[in-house]
Amino acid sequence: MLETVSHASHSRQDCPNHPRLWPDPKLLDTVFKALVHARENGDHNANELLRRRLCNYAVPLSDQDRTELLRWLAIYGERYFFPDLEAALRTLKYNARNDLVLRLQSIVTVGSSYIAKRDDYCATNLALNSCGPAPLFRPQLEIPSKLERTREHLLLLNDHQVIGLHWLWERRMDVHPNPRNRDIKSLFEKDRFDFEQASEIAAKKWTAEQKAQELGLSVDHRLAIPIFHGSALRDRYKRIRNREQRVRTNLLTHAQNPSSRLKASDIDDRVVEYSCLALAQGSPSKAVNWWILRTGQDRDPESRERRRKLFAKRKKELFAQERW
């Protein structure tokens, strides 16, 4: 039986280690319910948390205890929280773009549960939002169909939404939120990204199409963030990926011709160029934008113009028969 905790004699300042965790007594009750649910499901860590009375305002939380509590609250709680990753981001900001991509690939391929690698996964994605490719072009954990989703999958789904919102904010994308939705509108007006506000937006029970509409996302914005695709855009990108494999096979065959000037080492770049043109529906100018989103490398106007001319050339040489 859980002990009763009096809320009246405690304020937010009584738990200075993590004020976000204790904004009001109702949230404290949520923590209790989450730990009870976890314990009933045979979670021994939840028993240990209860034994140490971490839910009591009167007991200060160590960093380790707070992290452990938040992890179990994330799975069993009634309210969604994005993890506090400020310390991890201070370390990751010194990593090169390619190193971050490799780090994310390693996190994705490791066989542990999502909750065990959640902090690393989210922190690496946030770091890439500043300097790396758009979410569409990164290694990412897959979310199964609705009937196969577990609590961890639902947590991952919400985390992907916050990561996508942060990418839009970090890159200063030209979004046009519904003016009647003040929460979403204010998120993009702030000088510092509000993860708590983004978490509340992510937790709303809307479809991908509804959220994209409320956020005022263009089709290209939605394509760049898989969690906002919806069925139509998901199918469109799947067709592009399938055609990429066909193009790669054709290029390999062409490169093996003794009279060909195409080198096998150039094929990866050609496939990327094809993908950018396909996403841009054949527009060389838009393909430049997609190339920047895919590589994470921005360019000065002169370099962009050279890249645009290259895409126009590639379109004539390799993609003339493509139906966009």
Results as ranks from 00 to 15, higher is better:
K204D: 03
Q210E: 15
F195E: 09
D269E: 11
R52W: 13
D194A: 09
V175T: 03
I107G: 01
Q13Y: 13
N178Y: 00
L61R: 05
S285M: 11
L147Y: 11
P301D: 03
H176N: 11
V272T: 02
V272D: 05
L147Q: 13
Q197D: 04
K286V: 05
A134G: 03
P139I: 02
R246S: 10
E189I: 07
I267C: 02
R239H: 10
D266K: 05
R12C: 07
I107W: 03
D194G: 07
A116D: 13
D298M: 09
I267F: 05
N181L: 04
R71M: 08
A198F: 01
W167Y: 14
L156M: 08
A38T: 05
E244H: 07
Y114H: 08
R118Q: 06
P19Q: 12
P83F: 05
T124Q: 02
D29Y: 15
I163V: 15
A88D: 14
A8Q: 13
P301L: 04
P135S: 04
W290P: 02
K238H: 10
A8D: 13
K185A: 12
R39N: 10
L217G: 01
N289D: 14
W290S: 04
Q297G: 05
Q105I: 03
K286P: 00
R172K: 15
H10R: 12
T295C: 07
I292Y: 02
L50S: 04
L156S: 02
T30L: 09
R103Y: 08
T207Q: 07
N41I: 08
R248Y: 00
F195M: 09
R71A: 14
L126V: 08
S283G: 06
S145L: 12
A312C: 04
H18N: 14
P284A: 09
E322W: 14
A127E: 00
D120T: 00
N257C: 11
A320R: 15
P83H: 05
H10W: 15
K263L: 13
V110F: 06
V219A: 10
A38D: 01
P226E: 02
V101C: 05
C276D: 00
W290K: 03
H160E: 07
A134W: 00
R71P: 01
T207S: 15
A87Y: 06
P144R: 00
D269V: 12
K26R: 13
T67R: 14
P177T: 03
K93H: 11
C276P: 01
I163E: 01
E86L: 10
S113G: 00
W22C: 14
A134F: 02
G282D: 03
R239D: 07
S275M: 06
E317D: 14
D65H: 10
N95D: 12
L85N: 10
A320V: 14
I143K: 03
Q64D: 13
H37W: 03
R304Y: 08
A134P: 01
I240M: 06
T249V: 09
L147S: 07
L89E: 09
G296T: 07
Q213A: 10
N242W: 13
S231Y: 11
L2I: 12
L50Q: 06
A202P: 02
K26I: 09
L168Q: 02
K185N: 08
E305N: 10
P23T: 12
R90K: 15
